[in-house]
Design a binder for these strands. Structure first.
Ligand SMILES: [Zn+2]
Ligand SMILES: [Zn+2]
Ligand SMILES: [Zn+2]
Ligand SMILES: [Zn+2]
Lengths: 155, 155
DNA sequence: CGCTGGAATGAGAACAAGTCTCATTCTCTT
DNA sequence: AAGAGAATGAGACTTGTTCTCATTCCAGCG
C-alpha cells in the first residue's frame, strides 16, 4: 500500500498494529507510558519510513511535548522487538517504519539528487531473496533492498 | 613509466583500479595529491567495505599523517565519480568499497548481534533486480541489498 | 481510595561521525 | 623560477544520537 498518508485524527485501519505493538511490549515486560504510546500511534499512521528527527519534531510539537530521549528509547525498543524496521537510506540518519505481522513489506528507491524516497514491492525479488537463505552462512531474519537513481523530476 | 609509489605491502593485483581511479579523477579536472592517492591505494587493497573511521585511523597512523578532512573529501569525490560505493550497514556510520569498472560486485550479510559483515554474490538476485528496472518510476543506477541475521558464531 | 517501589519520562549534558574554515603547502603551467 | 590556483590538514563546528539522573507516572497492595 504505497501512498497511505497521514490520518491526523480518529481511529484508522492500522490500529491493529497499535494493538499488536502494545501486546508485544506488555509480553516483554514493559509498563504502559504516554510517550511510548504516542510514538507507536504516530508510526501506525505512516505508509512508509519516517526519519527519527521527523518523528521527534512531530511529537515535540504536540501539547504533550514528548522528550527526545523517550522518542529514541522507544524506537530502540520497538526495533529490538521487531515491531519496526530501522533503515539508513540517506546521509547518516535513521528512518523507521512499522513491520506488519503478516510479513507483508516493501523496499525503497531513493533519488540520489533530491533524496525523495518511494516504496515498491516485487514478488520476484522476494523469491530471489528467499532462495538465498541456505546459500549464505547466516541465519537470515530480515533483508533490505535499496535502489538508487534519478526520480522522474530530477532525471 | 607512471611512478606509482611503492606499496609497502607489496604489489597487489588491484592496481588496475588505482590507474582507473587516477584517470577518472584527471578527466574530471582534479590535480594530483598525496592524500587522495593514499586513500585510493588503501581502498584498492581491500576486498570488502571499510568504515570511514577505519580508513581515517589507518591513514593518520602512516608517516604521512593524512588529515581527516582530506580523507572525507576524497571519499566524497570518489563516490561522486562512482569510483566507490558508500554503504550504511551499521550503527550510523558509512563504509566504502571500490566499484569495479566491470560491474562485478557483491552484497552483504550483517550479523545483528556482533556486527560481522560478510560479502556474497548471487546471479539470481541480480537478475531479479535487473527485471525491476522498468517497473519503478526511477532511472536506477545502483542498488544495494543487505541481509541481516545471526552469524554462525552468534546463532 | 492513598502508598510505594520500580518503571517511564524529559531536560540537558555528553558523544561521535562527519563537515567546514582557512592558513599553508603543493602542482602544474609558463 | 614564479604565479595561479588546487590540495592539504589542524582544529573548530554541526548534527544525529545516547546518556544521566531528578522527577513523574503506573500498578499492585492494604
Ligand atoms: Zn517504506
Ligand atoms: Zn523483501
Ligand atoms: Zn563488500
Ligand atoms: Zn547486485
Amino acid at each position: 500500500m504505497p501512498g497511505a498518508t497521514v490520518d491526523p485524527v480518529g481511529p484508522n485501519r492500522h490500529s491493529a498494529w497499535v494493538e499488536h505493538a502494545i501486546a508485544a511490549l506488555a509480553d516483554a515486560g514493559y509498563q504502559r507510558g504516554g510517550a511510548r504510546l504516542a510514538v507507536i500511534e504516530l508510526l501506525a499512521r505512516q505508509g512508509c519510513a519516517m526519519t527519527a528527527i521527523e518523528i521527534d519534531d512531530r511529537l515535540r510539537a504536540t501539547d504533550q511535548g514528548i522528550g527526545r530521549a523517550s522518542v529514541y528509547r522507544t524506537l530502540e525498543q520497538l526495533e529490538e522487538l521487531k515491531l519496526v524496521h530501522r533503515l539508513e537510506m540517506g546521509r547518516g540518519m535513521a528512518s523507521y517504519e512499522r513491520i506488519e505481522p503478516s510479513g507483508e513489506h516493501h523496499h525503497h528507491v531513493v533519488c540520489e539528487k533530491c533524496g525523495r524516497v518511494e516504496p515498491f514491492e516485487d514478488p520476484g525479488l522476494e523469491r530471489a531473496i528467499g532462495r538465498l537463505q541456505g546459500r549464505v552462512g547466516f541465519e537470515v531474519s530480515e533483508h533490505e533492498v535499496v535502489l538508487r537513481g534519478r526520480c522522474p523530476r530530477c532525471a
